[in-house]
Design a protein around this nucleic acid. Structure first.
Lengths: 350, 350
DNA sequence: GATCAAAATGCAAGCGCTTACATTTTTAGG
DNA sequence: CCTAAAAATGTAAGCGCTTGCATTTTGATC
């Protein structure tokens, strides 16, 4: 087996009979090189199959044209669409994306952040806003542009492109109240380090408060974002002392898990119990009934995040871009059992 | 805004009053440094918040402890589970993962491969086996260990951990034949560059041949792996001259898309038409009826791929690990309409 | 204490690239 | 043609790290 090492800039320079500086310029600022030499060099590049060494390049130039995204999980599609859009936008500008996942663990996330920085990421996209002040300082000290996504928080000065999680679920809860629901349950991922899940709960509470319902009556559960585990959490909630008539989920994956479990328990949705989701994943559209949920502008969020990051000059003022969400009513949220709204509802929906 | 640059090895050396070589050894081969100096150095590392520069390290050592995975898409969960397992295995051995996606485009994949190599990946995991000989040579020339996954192909000498796609769908088709189906349709992603999709079709054909059915009667369609587009392909197939009684899909995502469209068209599954999938994603379990599919050992494949890669010494003999798949019967595959098997089937499944 | 191998440390040469600065070549005007 | 400015190219000094080799320190043995 040969031990060929990759051809270097120097090899190309020799082949093209120019200096390494010229080759470098050819690749980075082609307009500063005469056309004839440029052709010679590009020819040599092709002949040798040369491709620049990233490490060396980063070392010398302090730029990598690489951006990092650290997402809580790759295990389901929650972040996939936004990430895809983010990546597309980066590629179109000649930059590349590094992805890592933190498993919803703040310590792991911090490790990944440092790792990305050591790798020379020119900027970072993170999900949510709540993390240690220390890590924000670390990033700022090293002049790493940052964009936080999936939420909006005006109490600080970071770049942000997200939406108001609170008002989103407030609308949803208000709608549920209008349909006669009084006994609420809310389930989401662990909320301790997850500002989105926390805000969504807050939104539900506000919705109830607005209707003069005591928000402390909401039955609560936490479960990982998996269909099976969400099912168990649902079952647990349904055995609350006062059985909820609507189970609001922090995410469509959980909502689908709940729906599946409901079916297994012989409960009809929404006749016996309503279920709501969040995100508007494709997943929410394939189950029967479809999940009533909050539409999140995944792709726009990803795209705008990339724009912000690519335009970021260290030290410039930051931006907060708030995107809109809206309710998507499918079948999983219906009138509360035994509610006077029931007939009315059935009439209106067909 | 400060312009602090990251502390360097030299800073640490100065702080700890030792040479840079000692600091480096402290980090890489701690057992070759006396305990006292080691403590001094680690203290300095902590004090300065030092973390080594990846590029420089790679440049000097020619190793990055980084492995690349290039998957066709991140847009759905197909590869997520395997990737997760792959990543876990790598992390546990102190290595990290770089992910890129190719959008099922061979040229894009090739670009990503070269990119990973330039980034100094110590090894690569790729999906499927069919790509240009040129790129395989490139990888071999540069001594980049390689593991191919999701298929098995004994006609070459690459590392592989996958399964037999042909026999998997052959079983499935045979089962469908046993249920009385004679009019088959098969849909998958574009097959030109996708050996898995191609092999799965071949499996279906073999299944029919085994039952003396002309495989050329299979109605064919290609569509991206998205629910909406799969729905359209399904509709197209259902309007074939001879209407299929079973639509076999190259993937669960497509199967779910087909199922959804069937519902919209007022077709009952499996009474009016049967549908099968492939992969056994969670998605396949949440729809009604559940998708009858082929279980793929995602996690084991990811884990074994990592093992192979970590153990790979350039030039050593390669391995082919064949994993098993099995049928998972849910409700979407039933007896063919008007088939004498129908009652029998209903009895058996109660 | 002297001796010597083993252990610990330091020195310094790169790794492959970019880029300020110096030098050469080209171009345009007179 | 000559000249000066502009354009193109070359020279060489790093970027932050690892590592072979040289040197010093340690510690066991006599």
């Amino acid at each position: 087996m040969s031990n060929a090492t990759l051809p270097t800039l120097e090899d190309v320079a020799r082949e093209a009979k120019v200096s390494t500086a010229t080759v470098s310029r050819c690749l980075n600022t082609p307009e500063r090189v005469s056309e004839t030499t440029r052709n010679k060099v590009l020819e040599a590049v092709r002949a040798l199959g040369y491709s620049p060494n990233f490490g060396a390049r980063a070392l010398a130039s302090k730029r990598t044209h690489t951006y990092g995204a650290i997402i809580p999980t790759m295990a389901n599609a929650i972040f996939a669409r936004g990430l895809q859009a983010f990546q597309e936008e980066l590629s179109s500008k000649g930059s590349t994306l590094l992805v890592a996942s933190s498993s919803y663990d703040p310590e792991e996330e911090e490790k990944q952040i440092r790792n990305m920085v050591a790798r020379g990421a020119d900027g970072l996209v993170l999900i949510g806003t709540s993390r240690s002040e220390e890590i924000y300082q670390f990033l700022q000290q090293h002049n790493i542009p940052l964009v936080l996504t999936w939420n909006i928080d005006r109490s600080n000065t970071h770049n942000m492109v997200g939406f108001d999680n609170i008002s989103a679920t407030r609308k949803l809860a208000t709608r549920a109240v209008a349909l006669g629901h009084r006994n609420f349950a809310y389930m989401s991922a662990e909320r301790q380090y997850n500002d989105r899940a926390r805000d969504r709960l807050e939104g539900v509470r506000q919705g109830l408060i607005g209707a003069n319902i005591n928000p402390d009556t909401i039955a609560l559960a936490q479960s990982p974002y998996s269909i099976a585990e969400a099912g168990e959490a649902f079952q647990h909630l349904m055995s609350s002392e006062i059985r909820p008539t609507v189970v609001m989920c922090g995410n469509d994956v959980q909502a689908v898990g709940a729906l599946k479990k409901a079916r297994e328990l012989g409960l009809h949705v929404p006749e016996d119990v309503s279920i709501t989701g969040f995100d508007d994943l494709e997943l929410a559209t394939v189950v029967e009934p479809g999940i009533t949920t909050v539409h999140v502008p995944h792709r726009e969020m990803g795209r705008r995040a990339a724009e912000l990051l690519l335009a970021a000059v260290p030290g410039a003022k930051t931006q907060k871009i708030e995107l809109d969400t809206y309710l998507v009513e499918r079948g999983s949220l219906g009138p509360a059992p035994n509610s006077p709204f029931k007939n009315d509802y059935l009439l209106r929906t067909r």
